[in-house]
Design a protein around this nucleic acid. Sequence first.
RNA 1: GUGCCUGUAGCUCAAUGGUAGAGUACUGGACUGUGGAUCCAGGCGUUGCGGGUUCGACCCCCGUCAGGCACCCCA
Length: 425
Amino acid sequence: MKPTIRPVKGTRDFYPEEMAFRTWLYGQMKAVSQKFGYQEWEAPILESLELYAAKSGEELVKEQSFVFADRGGDTIALRPELTPSLARLVAQKQRELPKPIRWWSFGPFWRYERPQKGRTREFFQWNIDLIGVNSAYADAELVAIGAEFFKSIGLSAQQIVVKVNDRKLMEEQLAQLGVPPDQIEGVYRLIDKLDKLPAEKWRAYGIDDIGLSTEQIDRLSALLTNRELWKESADLTAFFNAIDDLGVSDYVEYDPSIIRGLAYYTGVVFEARDRSGEFRAILGGGRYDNLVGDVGGDPLGGIGFALGDVVIGLVLEKFGLKPQLRPAPADVLVTIFDAVLARTSAKVAAQLRSGGVKTELYPDAVKLDKQLKYANTQAIPIAIIIGPDEATQSQATVRDLRSGQQQVVKQAELVEQVGNWLGTK
RNA sequence: GUGCCUGUAGCUCAAUGGUAGAGUACUGGACUGUGGAUCCAGGCGUUGCGGGUUCGACCCCCGUCAGGCACCCCA
């Protein structure tokens, strides 16, 4: 093995093929965001560590952030998530921003942890948020956007499900079980582990580590399998009606075991998974009603979710839905027959570009079969050949590499002819 | 931070302790004005690195580095 410098642990190199997928993903996210009227925005990748100290989970800040001191001695973090930045931007212009605020963003994030399947240290995330409104339609809209996104990239409701719960409902239910407020966070952790631990271990964890009584854990256990629990919540009832109205109810289910890890969620929480449960959560989100206030603004609530590029890539691959993308943007390769005719080919290439055709000029007068082979590996659909026969009559051979058909046309008509070939296939 | 697994050709992987191979990719040719298919030819390795055991190590042992997976945690 050559002594090459390795990429930083947990990062990925985006060769043109991978970059084409990322760009495609971005395009799908943009399309769905705009369909719902959301505006694109972006925050700095560097933020003060204290921005996260306010509200994100303890572990996230202390153990999982890339943190460094800049040359002036300030403590800077590579952003591990976007929502605190969002709260900061909103708080800064809170009075002048027209409500409701509908914003979306796509960019890189970093977490310092051990990479494994579906998890890297650098990842890209779509964030989309609706701020300034607390209503069933606001909550349902975000879930609907997620569902519309899945639909748009070919993932059906048989393959993907968005599971929804409400922390307010859970708080009430836990209070009825006699769980004191300071124990709720621990019980949330316990709930989060429900499908990760075997039943016996889960019980033991709840009793020994969280401090529940056997009666409490039995009742909690019953609670977490009660798929009708949402009917006891007026908010969730209105939410599911709104989901119905928005036409995405086939993607959405109630699940009392959905809690999500972040400390700042205050109401509806949701996550999307593949129905077989093979992968980690594809997206996760919820309502946060205190966040803007926590960074110094007036209390203003919002709801949003984040969807990363890694897991969705794995899911699309599994279902055979990852698009076959062509990294080469050119539609035409102009070959060079020999050194003498190189100038003719170069002029033809320039002419095609003036006509708006994405054109590559082969940069060397090598054997024709090599040039065509190159076009083939790049999946460039059309090759143009100008040999002595064509040149003497100001003509060019247009070869369609998809069908193998070819035709001799006048050079002056190339733009039009190529347009026809591209359009009819 | 904890545990398990894996490091062999550019890539994917073989090789009862007896001098290291295949597919694919690449290059050239069959086909000197035409790609994909087929056939032929060609090069390739300090077996991650360092020690040890052995007459002999890709193989066994120790260390080390790297990667993967799971736990932890999850935006």
